[in-house]
Every structure is written in C-alpha cells, then in structure tokens.
Design a protein around this nucleic acid. Structure first.
Lengths: 217, 217
DNA sequence: CGCTAACCTAGAACAAGTTTCAGGATTCAC
DNA sequence: GTGAATCCTGAAACTTGTTCTAGGTTAGCG
C-alpha cells in the first residue's frame, strides 16, 4: 500500500496536503449522493453473496461511479464494508432507541438488546458475513473507521444498561468484554461453528459481568 | 471457490471420492517433511512482514515445493495460516505444560496463562498478525481447522483452571466467553486500538466469570 | 464569462491468490 | 520389476483488488 489512505474525498481545500484532518470535509450534495449510492450498492451486493460478492468493479458499476472514484471515497474494500457497517449500526441504534428493551436489570436489558441485534443480522446473514469479516480483517489503516464502529457498539450497550451516572472504569471494562464476546460470537456463528442457542448462552454469560462490576453504593 | 476443499493431500485411497473423511490420511515421510517445510516457510515469512508477506508463490519457493503442491497441502492461504497457528499453539501448549502457572485461584491462573501467551505473541507481532487475521477471516470452508484451533485454546484454558472434575456447562460457557475475549482483544491490540494494559484489564475482567460460575459444593 | 483547482470517467496496467495442464517422478500392488 | 494410480513440477492463465494515466467536467472566483 504505497499511498496513504484518504478516508474521504478531499474536497476543494488548499493545495494538496490535508489541511483539516478531523472535520472530514463537508461533501457537496452530489458527492453525498454518490457516497450513498455506493454504500447502497455495497449493502445490496453483500446481501446477495456476502463478502466475496462485494466486488469493487461491481460496486462501481452498480452505483454509476468510476472505479477510481470509488477508491477515492473508500480507499479499500475493507474500508467500504466497514463504512457499510457503520451505516447499518446507526440505523439499528436508531431503531433500538425507539423501542428500548423492557427487561428488568441492566444485564438482562443488554442481553436482550444484543440478541435483538443478533436476530436482525440473522435475517441478512450474507450482509452480516461481509461486514463482520471486513471488520475483523481490517488492519491498522482502517483503525479510525473500526474505532467508530466500536464506539457505536459501546453506545448501544451503554444505552441498554440505562445508567444514571457516568460508568465506572470497571463497567467500561465489562462493556469492552461484552463487545469482544459479541464480535467473536458473531464470527463463530457466521462460520457455522456455533448455533444461535450457543450464542445466546454466551451473551447471557458475559452479561453477568455487568452485575459483578455494578457499583455498590 | 468452485472446487470443494480437500483439507489434506488425499493419499492413495480408492478411485477419486473421499472414502475416509476423518482419519485425514497418514502422510509418508517425505510428505510429512514437505508439510513441515511449508509450515516453517509460512511462519518465517509471517514473522518478517505479517499477513501480506505470506505470499503463496514465496512460500512455495521457500519450501522447495511447486505452487500446485502447496495448494494440495493447504487449499488456500487462510488454511495455511490457520494450520500455522495450530502448530504454534501446540508448541505453546507444550511449553505451558512444563511450566504451569503458580497463582492461587483458577481465575488468576487462567489470566496469568493468557497473559503469558500474549507476551509470547508480543515477541513476534507480525506472526501473530498473520495468524490472527487469517483465523478471523476464515469462512466456512475452514471451519474444521478453525475448530481445531478453538479446541486447543479451550484445552489450554481448562488446563490452567486445574479442574478436579469435569467442567460444568456453566464453566464451559465461561471458557467460551474467555476465548471470545481473548481472540477479540488480540485483534484490537494488533490493529493498534488497544494497549497491552488494556488487554490485561480485559482478560482479568473476563476471568472473573470463572469465579461467578464456579460450582458451589 | 473565463480561469483554475479539484473532481470524475474510462480504461489499461499491475499484484497476488487461485486454477489448470502437460509431463516427469514416486509409490504401491502384484 | 512392471504397471497403474497418484503425486509432484513448472509454467501459463484467470480473477479480483488496487493503482495509474489522459482527458473531459464541475464548482468557486474574479
């Protein structure tokens, strides 16, 4: 990878160096539209045939964009799929927000939330395959994007816990471990090495950590 | 992937169909030697430059084997790297067996063991990168091999727990969750999104599950 | 309106994983 | 020791991710 990745199209700004790294540049309307077309095509192809079916040439063609342009928006296939995951997660987060779990107890609520997310993925296993494989295959060059996904997941879990105050460090550790378990369990399920029932048990098991680490007042 | 994978070279057996799926066929001495040369070359290249540096053509050349032969032994790059991981894990298991952890309490022993394994990987981060990326990228066609790795990991953890009797289902769940955490934490470390300290905390956090699920007699 | 920088397109070119094929080398059965 | 089955080799071909190039297009700006 000779060229350093440029997370987003560098919009009209200065000469050539990246002058404003964080705001990630406001896209024009047409650019935003292109970006969405690309993400849509990506998800569509993924739903069909999983990771392998998301072929860059096809994505470009489906979204009416030149191959070079696709690479300008997403510097690699993994970047593209991780961005697709961000997209899907955001939708899921919104959905969960509208219908929060009603169980009693933080652990039960988190487990219920994760299982709900799980069932959503179950409905589109190929899409899940593409996204999760990409996420786990990502190398350092995708860290920022992967990190965003991670923060989204954390937010979903913290939401489900329904905390009153700031989470303690112990709770954050528990949440991280839950995330680890979630990702890894997803993989074992996707590769057919674990059943849904198994995943459910693992999720419920790890959610016990929430109680173990609950602050005693 | 038009051709169904054949986990190992199909040794002289019948006409063409796989008549004896499980025993995986005894290899002749020269074949065993080839296999080892290949695995050695794979690990060597991986140590140098991680996943990307393990190029099938190079592996073939380094191990003095034709490309086609390499593919007969390992039907894909991922198969090869997962097999490499099996190899390394076996060595590690043997080492751990000779120097078991001396901490008091199952949870502490497991955590200590995993951190020791972790430090071993830390010494060859590129090799770790190659193996772990492969493991997590593996699709269904590699399930048997990935499962072997999983069983090896489970064995290491159970060993560290030093159980007297058969593990209860709850304990097995806890072990699975620990494995999930281990794998996922490894990834976050490899991709530079978590520090060693963070990994240590996560491992120790998840190991609390061992106590939570310990059978009360 | 016309300039200019940045963007986009079409298409070739390159890289590495994987497959295929023709022929030589091994190995087992007899 | 001969033959058949299998294995191994060397090399080319194919696939798909990624890069590069030349030229047309768009958007802000004087």
């Amino acid at each position: 990878m000779p060229t350093p990745p440029q997370p987003r199209p560098k919009p009209r700004s200065g000469a050539g160096a990246l002058p404003d790294p964080s705001p990630a540049a406001p896209l024009t309307e047409r650019q935003e539209a292109r970006r969405r077309r690309i993400l849509h095509a990506s998800a569509q192809l993924a739903r069909r045939g999983g990771f392998d079916a998301v072929q860059m040439r096809e994505v470009a063609e489906s979204s009416n964009v030149a191959l070079g342009t696709l690479y300008r928006y997403f510097p690699s296939k993994v970047h593209l799929l991780v961005a697709t995951m961000q997209d899907q997660l955001q939708q899921m987060h919104a959905t969960l927000h509208k219908h929060p779990p009603e169980d009693t107890g933080a652990a039960a609520r988190v487990a219920a939330t994760l299982m709900r997310a799980f069932r959503a993925l179950q409905r589109e296993p190929q899409l899940a395959d593409a996204m999760v494989r990409a996420l786990n295959f990502a190398d350092r060059s995708v860290s920022p994007e992967v990190d965003t996904v991670s923060r989204l997941t954390t937010a979903i879990i913290l939401d489900a816990m329904g905390l009153q105050d700031q989470p303690t460090p112990e709770q954050l550790s528990a949440v991280r471990v839950i995330e680890h378990t979630w990702h890894s369990a997803l993989i074992t399920w996707l590769s057919g090495r674990a059943s849904i029932a198994q995943v459910k048990i693992d999720i419920e098991t790890v959610c016990q950590l929430i109680e173990v680490t609950a602050p005693r007042d």
